[in-house]
Design a protein around this nucleic acid. Structure first.
Length: 586
RNA sequence: GCGCCCGUAGCUCAGCUGGAUAGAGUAACUGGCUUCGAACCAGUUGGUCGCACGUUCGAAUCGUGCCGGGCGCGCCA
């Protein structure tokens, strides 16, 4: 409808220009807004104010000219000029009812579009290190990434969801060593657990599995393990050195093959746990991309060599530096350490190059806000490699700070004291968790009070929306019980019987759904959809309490049922995109 | 010190590419179930939009400078 009105205005302006009433070089950027106040009609345009200056006329005078030149339309009841020069459009009933027919016709397809034209996009999200279970901080990225993917699919893109698995590097070595040391403790060795190791209970469980599957295969005397290892921090030493020496000792005593078994035991088990956790949360990836596999394939070395060939690598102090300052970064970055090991950044370069080569129109990364410093260097590397860095879109997700009442909860994986995503899901439920996470825009810091979410779960907005859906389902059930049915023949809708103000505003809300989806998707802001659904549910609840559906008058009944069915459809469509269920009863 | 994000009602947050009297939820208070589900509805109270300039017909929205909070600035991942 907006489009139709915009066309009318464009015609009017073009008409005025051809008559010489307006300058030729005028380029109208027609903007149609939804009005907040219905006394201003359904839609408003500020075109007269926009053109006032270039046309050298007063806004109101210009508005009059535009209105007089406006072609007539069956959808427009009347047009008024108001305020400083707004042109307000009042729709005819038929104009407003169009949307009802469209919803009934398209059902779950309503609101979806083909704007994306089937182009391929990739969304990479969560990508937490497989060193422990996901915690509530990861949950926000998970819910956001999945919802964004759903929205992009809804507007016609083909989306691949991807998880970058950091299954190589020092953190994983620390995990493997932690598991092994717990294993040794299980077998009765007196070993003081390193302060820098992973202390969570799940590490002990991994050690238990190791015992039951491999018995004493990895056993060694505590004295051999700890011999000549430097002191840990509590004993006055350096905790980083301490853990690094323990890693070396583990590799040396176990040998390549056995070390890999211990390593993989931890990796595979945690990865499986993460995958299951996310699946239960409604998220399935098209690809789990292994960093280790990428390194073993030689892609990381190849990327470094390519940069070297292009002349962007300097050798300093035994290390290889990528000259990222040539491409707008603050400082140059090491890609290969003096010990010959590639850095995390080197993997990232190779990984992003690989993504780009897989033919996506755009690659979207969802990162925690603490990673914002990496944007410049990754884009710099892509640019150096001859790729267009604008194809990489990075969305930063601010932290969710978890509270239990007033108490702020720790979220460190290493310390082992954190609330897992699974615990959160069990406590507040998947629907409330998914909904809560995307209610606020991602740039906002978020306070997540567990006690509130739990104790006041009845007041959670997600139930408000679901309740509207359940009420509609309930009415339909009641209809059947009374031996009645909704007449699905459009001739029998009798929409002209919808004359109540609550009906008008509900219809108006319904008509806003498609543009809400489009905007949410394009701006990457699922919270717009959340707020829309709340408003829609609000409009419905108000209507529901004021007017009965199952009235004697069959025409009014069918008209209202039609409106109910449309409302239920939109709530279902919206909640589905959010990954929230739309229950028939609750 | 430099960079990114944020500052709107007591609290948690919306406010669409600048648009008409700044909106929800929650909390507080008042009223509404013999009638399709009260997990609901109607109403009242509550704001110098952090502060100050600037841009213009018009600024919560854009620009600059302060103030306040969060995060980042490793041969860690």
């Amino acid at each position: 409808m907006k489009q139709k009105i915009a066309e009318l205005i464009e015609q009017a302006v073009a008409d005025l220009i051809s008559k010489g009433a307006l300058p030729e070089d005028l380029q109208p950027r027609v903007q149609i807004d939804n009005t907040k106040d219905k006394s201003h009609g359904e839609f408003a345009s500020n075109i007269a104010m926009m053109l006032a200056k270039p046309a050298r006329k007063s806004p109101r005078e210009l508005a009059t000219m535009v209105v007089d030149s406006l072609p007539s339309s069956q959808w427009i009841e009347k047009v008024e000029i108001a305020g400083p020069g707004f042109i307000n459009f009042f729709l005819t009933d038929q104009g407003g009812f169009q949307i009802i027919h469209e919803i009934i016709e398209k059902k779950q397809q309503f609101g979806r579009s083909t704007k994306g034209a089937g182009e391929k996009l990739q969304v990479e999200f969560v990508s937490a290190n497989p060193t422990g279970p996901l915690h509530v901080g990861h949950g926000r990225g998970a819910a956001y990434g999945e919802t964004l993917s759903n929205l992009l699919e809804a507007v016609g893109y083909q989306v691949d969801r991807e998880y970058y698995l950091n299954d190589a590097g020092r953190q994983m070595d620390i995990l493997a060593t932690s598991v092994w040391l717990r294993y040794l403790q299980q077998s009765g060795e007196k070993i003081l657990f390193p302060s820098n190791g992973y202390k969570g209970d799940y590490v002990i469980e991994l050690a238990d599995q190791l015992v039951s599957e491999h018995s004493k295969r990895f056993s060694h005397d505590a004295t051999d393990v700890m011999n000549s290892i430097c002191d840990d921090e509590p004993a006055g030493g350096n905790k980083e050195q301490h853990i690094d020496q323990l890693i070396e000792r583990a590799k040396q005593l176990l040998g390549t093959e056995d070390y890999r078994i211990v390593f993989d035991q931890g990796l595979n088990s945690i990865r499986a746990d993460i995958e299951q956790d996310l699946e239960e949360f409604g998220i399935e990836y098209q690809c789990w991309f292994s960093e280790r596999a990428m390194m073993e394939s030689g892609k990381v070395d190849a990327a470094i060599e390519k940069l070297q060939d292009l002349g962007f690598i300097d050798e300093k102090e035994g290390a290889l530096w990528f000259r990222s300052t040539d491409f707008g970064d603050d400082k140059d970055r090491v890609v290969k350490r003096d010990n010959g090991q590639p850095t995390y950044f080197a993997s990232d370069i190779a990984y992003h190059l690989d993504k780009f080569q897989r033919g996506y129109k755009e690659v979207i990364n969802i990162w925690g806000a603490d990673h914002h410093g990496y944007m410049a260097r990754v884009k710099a590397a892509l640019k150096a490699l001859g790729e267009n860095p604008d194809r990489l879109k990075i969305r930063l997700v601010q932290f969710a700070i978890l509270y239990r009442g007033k108490e702020r909860l720790a979220m460190s994986t290493r310390s082992g004291s954190f609330i897992t995503l699974r615990e959160l899901r069990n406590e507040v439920g998947n629907d409330a968790a998914r909904f809560f996470y995307v209610t606020r825009k991602v740039e906002q810091h978020m306070d997540f009070d567990l006690e509130l979410a739990k104790s006041q779960s009845k007041d959670n907005p997600v139930y408000y929306i679901q309740y509207a859906h359940a009420r509609i389902a309930s009415v339909q059930k009641k209809l059947q019980e009374e031996g009645l049915a909704w007449d699905s023949n459009p001739e029998q809708y009798h929409l002209d019987r919808l004359i109540e103000p609550q009906e008008k505003s509900l219809i108006n809300k319904l008509s806003l759904y498609p543009e809400t989806i489009l905007k949410s998707a394009e701006a990457g802001e699922p919270h717009l959809l959340v707020h829309y659904l709340r408003e829609l549910a609000g409009a419905f609840h108000g209507y529901y309490t004021e007017h009965k559906v199952l009235v004697e008058d069959a025409e009014i009944r069918n008209a209202r049922l039609t409106l109910y069915i449309c409302t239920g459809q939109i709530i279902r469509n919206g909640l589905t995109l959010l990954g929230v269920s739309a229950p028939e009863s609750m």
